[in-house]
Amino acid sequence: MSKKPTFKEIALDGVLRQNPVLKLVLGTCPTLGLTTAAISGLGMGAAATFVLICSNILISLLRNVIPDKVRIPCFIVIIATFTTVVRGLLEAFLPDIYDVLGTFLPLIVVNCVILGRAESFASKNPVGSSALDGLFMGLGFTLALTLMGIVREVLGAGAIFGTALWNFKIEFFAKPAGAFFTYGLFIAVFTLVSNALEAKKSKKKAVVAETAEEGA
């Protein structure tokens, strides 16, 4: 049996090392469709995080009860239930966000991030770790969508969170082509930075090992 992941590992994996949007390239549909404004990215991220946490908890609780043969249908039913719940909650209490998310809200059911975490993490780990995994994966997803939303809104609409900054705008960034371009840029920058950090870490390890060898 693999060792239980630590809090730090789960947090770093969710937000950085296994970021669902920028590293695993999952949940691309809402990423491209909903990042014209920061608020819609944030709203989508929060809704997906809610579903991630709740479905991870329930799936983890039922992991020893759900037979392997019907695990995927069971996961989908659970995810669909929480998606319907979040849809109802938003319509009742946050109608503006509900209107902004539109058709992407029910599509959370088929979000690869959520089914992916249910299958690869929640169905194999205890409740606490699964809840944390849902939280941090959700945070990573929300962070990526919100940052992309900020960049596209600032450049494409000259505003941030709906507040106008200036009259200058490049409409390309508000259009679908702008979504692909921004997404590509984000992945490139994220990969560059994480590769540089990885290289720095490896170098540091090598130096430590070399020093230890010399000492011996």
Binding site: L62, I66, P67, C74, V77, I78, T81, T84, V85
Partner: peptide
């Protein structure tokens, strides 16, 4: 058993959603 488990999960989820609706 797999069918029963799936059915039970479906029924519970439907019940919860009916109340929340």
């Amino acid at each position: 058993l797999p069918v029963v488990v799936l059915l039970v999960i479906c029924i519970v989820c439907v019940g919860v959603l009916a109340v929340l609706n």
